[in-house]
Write a protein that binds this DNA or RNA. Structure first.
Lengths: 199, 199
DNA sequence: ACCGTAGCCAACCAACTAGTTGGATGTCAA
DNA sequence: TTGACATCCAACTAGTTGGTTGGCTACGGT
């Protein structure tokens, strides 16, 4: 029979609990017992729904990236504005930043990433949008720029300890930092004159 | 009596082994037994020299940052060149990048970081150097720029899985990426005209 | 010669951990 | 009514782990 509401609710509760636990502690540091407890579900259900700890992590990061995609529009004609709203999203969702970091540290170079095909596809669309906004054809160069924009938006949340050392109390002024990042990007990337229209 | 060569050698071997283990697996994922085995030293010596696992990590990252400081000159008048050589250093020492990431993920906001005072001091010197190179006074704004330059140099090694998704095979072209980062920085930051001389 | 100490070791310990097992309950189709 | 199956649970298992302990050896000072 089709899974009923209760099964879907169990799965959702486990994903929510796992997101918090993996964001805080990573894959090796997360505890399966704690995830189950936080979800109010038996530990065996984690294995029933997801198979093992690592597949649970994959499901968590895939879901978090899906949510990002539904909420943040493509770069378009204004990369600085794009970086600004992406920065704001990451500031509001530090768990996604941390999940990407744990994933990066766990990455061994060749194996497929969770949801790889759709992630590649989405990034290609972002690259195309950025290229159009810059009045250029999509290329490796524009993809590198897209990578740097994504990275710049992530940096403040990725390196809070470095921000603290470098900026002291000002490290808490997140909005000022976001403006600084957007200004940096605006200076680095020319806004195209005439021609291209934003979508 | 003063520690003899053998004691210093034990400590050095433990630090080397710990650097590899912590870089690869982080604090929670590292195994004390593996560190001791790799160092060719009894596990109890870790506790004898460092106290506990977390203090060992602190010693490792402090040593790695000390080495960075001895090898990379201050920003000076050419921030793009600075980012280029910093990028090259991080590309050659991915273990430092990873240690900074594990530290970031372990950071809980308020507690002192290992070697905090000297790290703050070094960053203040970098900020002063950058500010002078830009023909400005050191300020929170120049400190934010310094933070972004440091972050840009770190990005490719910090997010290899994202680079892979966004750039495909081109993700392995590290030198091209470094040039792209340096060009991005050169575009974002004006080179001062007249006035300031590089140190 | 003896004593104290530094530095080292093998073995140990108490607690922890991911994953499994045997069984219970509810639902639906025959 | 019965059987099959999905979904759930408490208890368990086999192995892991950070840190400790009791003792050995070498060395230097008295």
């Amino acid at each position: 029979m089709a899974p009923n509401v209760s099964t879907a609710a169990t799965r959702a509760a486990l994903l929510d609990a796992a997101r918090e636990e993996f964001a805080a502690y990573g894959i090796a540091g997360a505890r399966v017992d704690r995830i189950a407890e936080r979800a109010g579900v038996n530990k065996e259900r984690i294995y029933g729904h997801f198979g093992n700890k690592e597949k649970l992590f994959d499901a968590v990061i895939t879901e978090a990236l899906d949510e990002l995609t539904t909420q943040i529009a493509l770069p378009g004609a204004d990369p600085a504005a794009y970086v600004d709203r992406l920065s704001a999203y990451y500031a509001d969702h530090p768990e996604l930043v941390r999940l990407l970091m744990w994933e990066a540290l766990n990455y061994r170079g060749q194996e497929l990433l969770p949801g790889q095909e759709s992630r590649v596809e989405r990034c290609a669309r972002k690259n195309a949008s950025l290229a159009e906004g810059l009045g250029q054809e999509p290329s490796t160069s524009t993809a590198r720029t897209m990578f740097l924009l994504t990275g710049l938006a992530l940096l403040p949340a990725m390196l809070p300890q470095l921000a603290r050392i470098m900026l002291g109390e000002e490290a808490s002024a997140h909005e000022d930092m976001r403006e600084h990042v957007a200004a940096f990007v605006a200076a680095a990337l020319p806004t195209p004159k005439g021609g291209s229209r934003p979508r």
